[in-house]
Each structure stands twice: as structure tokens, then as C-alpha cells.
């Protein structure tokens, strides 16, 4: 696919996502405030109950800033995951029309996925930019130009990694009639193991060591830690290298699953 076509597909998808404006603003502002509200009160109760000034390397303000960033960045990373468009195309026979397109189906879907990130990016800037100003820079966090650049790099990697994790799961639709439960299971697991529910430094040491080998922390905790300046260059490079390794492995797995599934595809739909 040419870069021009790629960005055109992104643009069309972004416009589609923002066409229902009331919905967009309701879910973006309302959803964000509701999610952050729960996190705020849990963190407050946690610090109140423990009586300690820092937990897992976070001060109270530091943990709130972490949650605000991870909620907003999580939306950017996840993109269209909930839409199951790939599984739907397979199941309903919609994949057939893409076979005629002079471009790769997966790259086309990834371009659409990038398009859906635009509203999430808008939310990130509109809702997230004032947070460091309001909370100041808590102990342990250092937001600088370099940390923002590292955060952007880690977020791009996380977005690709998330798509590659979801791709083989959706391809299971070649065999199963409904993969919604599998997608949700992946999301539930990624939320816990990726640091969206609880910062990973709150887990016991042995769990942190095990999680560090998995792709999940690279989805949410890694880009947020990079953005908030909680990582040095060495840690960031290590994370990026691990992420690239996982991307390569997932491309191999995804292509193998897709190739096997493609042989079964009859194009008849439901």
C-alpha cells in the first residue's frame, strides 16, 4: 500500500469516527471522568489505609497522574480493538471484496485502525495536557521534551503491538463463529498485566519479573512510564527492543494463522 493511500484510509476512518459528535464527546469526557474518578478514590483509600507517603514508588499525586495518563494513552493504544471488524469480515464474507483490492488486507485494516486513533489522540491532548500543570510534577516523574519523545515512540510501538496481538485472535473467526469473548478475554488480561488496572510496581517482585517478559506491560505501563520520565534511556531502549521482538514473533504467528484460515475461507458469509 502506498503511503498516500494509507493516510487516505486513515483520514476516512477518522472522519467516520467523529461523525457522531454527541456520542464522541459523551464517551470521551464522561468516560474519562468516570474512569479517573474511580481510580482517584481507590488510590485515596489505598494511601489512607496504608498510611505511607509512597506506594510502589508512587506518591499520591504521582499515582493519580499515572492513572490519568494510562487511561488516555490506553485509548490511543487500543484503537478499534472493540470493533472486531476483521472477525466480522471473515464471518460475514465481507473479506471477499478486499481480495479484489490491489493492497494487503491486513495493512488496509491497520490503516483503518490508525484512523480510529485520531479521536483518542484528540482526547489525549484536550484532557491530558492540563494534568501535569494542575498536579505539578510529582516526585519520581519528570516530563521533558526527551520524555515526551520517548513516550511517543513507545506509544507507536504499543499501538502496533496491540494490533498484532488482536490480529491472530480475530483470525480465529475462520474457525469459530464468534470471537467476541476471546477479544474481551484478551482485553481483561491486558488491562491487569499491562498496568491499566493497577500500576505494575504494586505487584510482588516475582510477578513483576514474570510480567517483564510478556508483551502486556509494553502496551500501557511502558509508554506511560516513558512519557512521565520514569525511564532512563537504557530502560527505554530495552523496552523498545523487547517490543520489536514481540512484534516479529506476532507477525510470524499471525501470518501462519491467517494462511491456514484463508484456506478454509469460503466467502459465503453467515
Amino acid at each position: 500500500m502506498t503511503p498516500r493511500l494509507f493516510w487516505h484510509v486513515c483520514g476516512v476512518e477518522a472522519r467516520k469516527r467523529m461523525s457522531y459528535r454527541v456520542d464522541f464527546w459523551l464517551s470521551s469526557i464522561g468516560g474519562f471522568l468516570a474512569q479517573l474518578g474511580v481510580a482517584y478514590f481507590i488510590v485515596l483509600a489505598l494511601f489512607h489505609g496504608s498510611g505511607r507517603p509512597t506506594i510502589g514508588g508512587f506518591t499520591f499525586q504521582g499515582m493519580i497522574l499515572y492513572y490519568a495518563a494510562v487511561i488516555l494513552l490506553g485509548r490511543v493504544v487500543r484503537g478499534t480493538e472493540a470493533d472486531q471488524t476483521i472477525a466480522q469480515d471473515i464471518y460475514e464474507g465481507g473479506l471477499t471484496r478486499y481480495l479484489l483490492y490491489p493492497t494487503s488486507y491486513t495493512v488496509f485494516k491497520y490503516a483503518q485502525n490508525v484512523g480510529t486513533l485520531v479521536p483518542a489522540l484528540l482526547q489525549l491532548f484536550l484532557l491530558g495536557a492540563w494534568f501535569p500543570l494542575a498536579l505539578g510534577t510529582p516526585e519520581g516523574a519528570r516530563i521533558t521534551g526527551a520524555s515526551i519523545a520517548m513516550g511517543v515512540g513507545a506509544s507507536v510501538l504499543a499501538s502496533v503491538l496491540y494490533f498484532l496481538l488482536v490480529w491472530p485472535i480475530q483470525a480465529i473467526a475462520f474457525w469459530a463463529d464468534n470471537v467476541w469473548s476471546l477479544m474481551l478475554a484478551h482485553r481483561i488480561l491486558a488491562n491487569l498485566m499491562g498496568g491499566l488496572l493497577v500500576p505494575l510496581t504494586l505487584f510482588p517482585e516475582w510477578a513483576q519479573r514474570a510480567l517483564a517478559l510478556l508483551p502486556f506491560p509494553l502496551l500501557f505501563a511502558f509508554p506511560v512510564d516513558a512519557l512521565l520520565g520514569r525511564l532512563d534511556l537504557h530502560q527505554w531502549l530495552k523496552g523498545i527492543a523487547l517490543g520489536l521482538l514481540w512484534c516479529t514473533a506476532l507477525i510470524v504467528i499471525g501470518r501462519a494463522v491467517w494462511r491456514r484460515g484463508d484456506r478454509r475461507y469460503a466467502g459465503v458469509g453467515i
Binding site: 454527541v22 456520542d23 464522541f24 464522561g30 468516570a34 474512569q35 478514590f41
Partner: peptide, 24 residues
């Protein structure tokens, strides 16, 4: 409304207020 997606999203975002102890 033309679509109920936004309010549904808010409901799902509010669900954790039910699944966390109200004492917090």
C-alpha cells in the same frame, strides 16, 4: 438520539462504581 453508543460507554465507565466497595 441517533445512536446510544455514547451513553452506553458512560454506563460501562460507571460500572466500576458498583463493583468497588462504596466505602472508598
Amino acid at each position: 438520539m441517533h445512536t446510544g453508543g455514547g451513553l452506553r460507554e458512560i454506563f460501562y465507565a460507571l460500572e466500576p462504581y458498583a463493583t468497588r466497595p462504596h466505602g472508598v
